[in-house]
Structures are given as structure tokens and as C-alpha cells.
Design a protein around this nucleic acid. Sequence first.
DNA 1: AGTTGAAATGTAAGCGCTTGCATTTTCCAT
DNA 2: ATGGAAAATGCAAGCGCTTACATTTCAACT
Lengths: 341, 341
Amino acid sequence: MSKLKPAPTLDDVARKAGVSTATVSRCLNTPDRVVEATRKRVQSAIEALGYTPNFAARVMAAKRTFTIGAIIPTMENAIFARGLQAFQEELHQHGYTLLVSSSAYKPATEEEQIRTLVARGADGLLLIGHDRAPHIYEFLQRRDIPALVAWSFSPDGRLPSIGFDNRAAMYELAQRVFDLGHRRLAVISGITHGNDRARLRLDGVRDAVRQRGLDPQGLQVIETPYEIENGADAFARLMSQDTPPTAVMCGNDVLAAGALLRAQDMGLKVPQDVSITGFDDIELARILRPALTTVHVPHREMGGKAAKALIEMVEKRAPAAGEHLFTHIVERQSLGPANSA
Amino acid sequence: MSKLKPAPTLDDVARKAGVSTATVSRCLNTPDRVVEATRKRVQSAIEALGYTPNFAARVMAAKRTFTIGAIIPTMENAIFARGLQAFQEELHQHGYTLLVSSSAYKPATEEEQIRTLVARGADGLLLIGHDRAPHIYEFLQRRDIPALVAWSFSPDGRLPSIGFDNRAAMYELAQRVFDLGHRRLAVISGITHGNDRARLRLDGVRDAVRQRGLDPQGLQVIETPYEIENGADAFARLMSQDTPPTAVMCGNDVLAAGALLRAQDMGLKVPQDVSITGFDDIELARILRPALTTVHVPHREMGGKAAKALIEMVEKRAPAAGEHLFTHIVERQSLGPANSA
DNA sequence: AGTTGAAATGTAAGCGCTTGCATTTTCCAT
DNA sequence: ATGGAAAATGCAAGCGCTTACATTTCAACT
């Protein structure tokens, strides 16, 4: 155990600059309330000492952290990357820092992360989707922590949300698939338990099936975690049946990428032999061949607006109005007319 | 501005349980130093009040945060995901929390993040690669913050490192490429400025070129940020020349994925018309067709060992020994013999 | 019952900052 | 010059916890 080298404190700076700690503090927080000469003196003392304010102390005294926490289901693929990037840029603009953690799609982990972030004094929280245990909402409310949901819009969630209508978006895409003559569809869905986005997307397809007067029971569905390889495996299972589907709708682009690549492996031509669709419109969707027909989500817009709304909630301490963002279908090559065969 | 709802404090719990704050604190931190009956009473008071310790206050008093910070170049692709996952799992095992932030491959941003993390009291820091301004190392040293480098091993870096030899790994792969008869190679490298991994990988290829008695000047190199699309564009540029290379070695799998997909687009057969190699062995490498020949990096092992080493540095306050991990070539289909054409 | 040492608990001093309020300085208008 | 308001600065009280040290309790001996 070597001797500790205590970091310089406000006191050290104050002494060195020959002023009071209050003045140093003001130099840092409200520089216009300090006269230029003093400010300069303090500034050089700070530099000479290599002083950095102690975050914990500042938080204790000011009861504000200027920190926003976000808990996303995964960092392992690009689904949330772009939106989160925009979120954090907007936050940065306003002087806030973002703390991200990932729940690995596990409700229990998400809860733990929420508590950790709150204990760390996050001024506000960004959560993905509406599905979570009621006691979490109660905890947030009791603690009076502003929280906002993104990636899923619902006018009557327990929390305001900024996102899109997963169900309607997928419904629309399914209609398009039907319009192209497909009748035997299958869905490779993400795990729906505790994930309203996955569930609503699946519901969207079912809505379309019903709307066409088809039997919803006839719709084959495989639920699997959002990983390329799982998409590939699910696709293989689907296609190795006697009467395979002519179109496979995937819960997101990652799953669809897996399906696409496996199709190639199996010698299946997309979209001639089978059509594949995705959801999210991540970078990969554009680069794959055939390029993926998918639902475009306004990631950057969503992230930016979520940041603004959350900051508003934090600073005004008033509930924000949610916002319904719109998605649209991006038609590329992976979806084609049903093979008459 | 609604009225504030102050979170319950240790004091509240103590009063409710009829004990002193010290006892409550001990219940939380050293439960075996409190008799069972008291502990239970305190426990129920905690639950009744919904008490969560205030992190900032705890940090101030204990001068420990049990937090480790990690700054990675990007979260936008999977390169660091697996290693970081293992890192954080190991940390969690030992009661530490991980704070991640991304520098977007910008040295200035990295520096800012380092300062932020230090100000927030990170007990230790995980950094990627050795390339950074000397004053950053001085800052860390002055503050006596344990820090460790990963993803790049160097016995004489300013910080101990746990990683592999990027140069040797790429050298070995280049040798394999030469062995297959290739003579016209090109490299699609990541941006080397401020990125020793990218630089060393490139150096590795150059070493092999020189070792074969070829002119290093003849080696075409395109530097571009690590994004699928950039890999694709660079590949297109390389292949649209009069005498295109017969093998394109990419600085990582993301770039290689772009190259591969673009090759498909251009009607080029891989590896018959052109060979492509990657580096990192991320999930995508296995799933692409042709599957990518690449350098396997022991991500999980590296993450786990880095966590152990860093915790050791933090708790013993002694410099850790670095560790040289080994990579190996994974031969899949994207690399084949040189076309005699 | 009386001692006594260990175990359990309590007391109170900070940790490094912000900020309301008190005090001093500055700078005009007179 | 000088009174006085405004600007600049200083003083000191916390913020919610941990922990060294002091005190009390308890059980096991004589």
C-alpha cells in the first residue's frame, strides 16, 4: 500500500489563489459573477495544481448530477447505437453526461440497473419499451425520478414515450407482403416476454393475417433472441419443412440478416425462392445482398427528441408530452412477389 | 416546480429502527458485525422506507466507488462487445460496477472521458491501446489512478497491458497469404493516427512484404474509418484499377465484411477472383459467405483477465504484470490461392 | 454475585463541495 | 470628497454517508 496522493481540493486552489472556496466554486459554476482578475488568478491556480472538481462532493452539495441514465437491452448489435448516439449528442449540448448500461434483455437486470443509476443520482432515465413490472414504475414515482420511454410509442403507458407504433408498422409491412401475393408467411420474432416491441411487431403481422381473413393459427412463429446466428437457425428450421413459407418476416434486421445469409447457404434465391423482411433499417440492411426490405425507424430523430424531452422533464419537473414518430417501409430487394410454384 | 420528495436517508432508517446511523451503515457494509435481531429490525426499516444508499455520500465518506471505467473507441460495432461483456461480468463478480463510454476514435474525446471518469471517482480505468498523449499518462500517474491497457500487448508501454501482438498476428496472416501465391496485395486499414492496433496491423503486413524481398512501396494501402460501408468503398476503389490486387487484407472484420459484400455486388467471386481477410473474428465473420478468414482474438479471455488484473491493481495498489495473449488464424473460405490469371 | 474481555452499539468528525446570507469593495452620482 | 447601491467576495452550514474511538452490553468465568 503506497501512500495516497490526495487529489487537490477546492481548498487547495483557494489557498493558492488567495481567495475563498466560495469564489473558486463560483469561478467554476457562474464565472460571470467573478471579476476577471480574480478569475484569471483562480484559473492559473487550478491549472498549476491540476485540479478537477470532485464529482461526488459536487453532487452532494448541489443535489444535481447533470447525469442521465439509459438502460438499453443490448450493446451487442447496432440496433440502439444510432439512436443512443443522437441521444447522447443532444445531452452533451445541454451539459449532461450519459451513463449507459445494458440489461441483456433481462427484466431482473434492468431493474438492478435502474436502482444503480438512481442511487448514483441520475437526474433522469431513458428506458426502452413499456413492458416492466409495476413496482418499478412505483419506485420511480416514489423517488420522483423523471423517466421516459423510447423505441415504442404508446399514448397510455405509465411513462410518456417517444417512439413509433411497432404494431402498425409491422402491420403495414405485412400488408405489403400479402399484396405481393404471399399467403404462406412465417415470422422469426424476438423473444416477446418482457419486450413490447417484439410482441407488438408480431401482433402487427397477426392483425394483417386476420384482416385478410386467414387463420392466425396458420402463421408459423419462431421466437428467438436477437442474434444473427439465431436468425439463421430459425430460418433453416422454417425452410426445411414440407411446405415452407414463401415469405419470412423477421422481428428485426439482425434476425433478417441471419436468415438471408442462411438462405444463401441453403442455395435459396432471395426473393425468387423466398422473401425476407427486417425491421429497424440498420446499416447492415443496406449493405447485404439482396439488400433488405425493412421498416425504417427514425433513430436519430428519436434519440434527439428523447433527450430534449427528458431534459425538459428534469429541469421543469413536469411530465413531458410523448411523441408519436413515423416509420416507413424501405423497399429493397429481399422482398418480391410470391413464387407461383 | 413540484415539491421535492427527498429520498429517505440513513438517518431516517436509523430513527425508524431505533438504532444509530453507524449501526445501519454496518448492517449494509459489514453485516456480520451486527447482531441478528438488530439486523432484522434495520432490514425491515429499510424495506418499509424503500431506502437506497446515496452513492455520492457513500463515495465521499469511503473514498471508494467500486466503479471501474472503460473507454472504448466505439460501441457502434461488435468489435469490443464480447471482450467488454466478459470484463464486466468478472467485475460484477467482485462487486464492481462498470462505467463505459466511447471516444468515437477521437483522442480529444478520449481525454475528456478519462477526466470525467476520474472526476467521478473511478477506482481504475481500462483503456484500449497504447497510443495517447504523454500528458494523459502523467495525469493518471499524478492522480495515482490504476489503469490498464487492453487489446494491444506491449511489454514496455507506459501502462501494463493485457492483449495480443497485433503486428505479429497480422504478419503471420500476411505470410499465409504470400504462401498461397499472392504477390499483389492491398490493405484496407483503419485510421492509424492515434490507433496503435491499426498501425501495428499495417506494420505487420509491411514486415511480411519486406521479409519476402518485395518493395514495401508497392503495397497499396487505404486508410478509412471502421465502418462496413467504408470497407465496401475502399474495396471498390482498389478493384477498379488496371491491375487490381489478388488479395485484400483488411484491418478488421467490419472492413472485411464491407469488402466482401461489395465484391459480391461487383460480380467478383471470393476467393477465386480475389481473396479477402479480416481481423478480430467477430460473429459476422463466421456468418458471412464466403466465411471470413481472419485472426481470432481471445476476446473473453482478454476481458476476464483484464478485469482481474485491474481489480488487483486497485486493491493492492501495485502495478500489475501485463499478459501476452495469443491469437491464431482461422482459415475459412475468403482466402484462397492466388489466381494464376 | 463480581470480574472481565469481547462483542455490539453509539458518538461525532470529517469527506469536498455549493449557496444563502453577511461583509467588503467598487464605482457613480452628487 | 462622499453617500449609497451594486458588484464582488467571504463565511459557514450543511449534503448523507463511513469509521475511529468511546461506551455499553453480555456471557463466561471465578
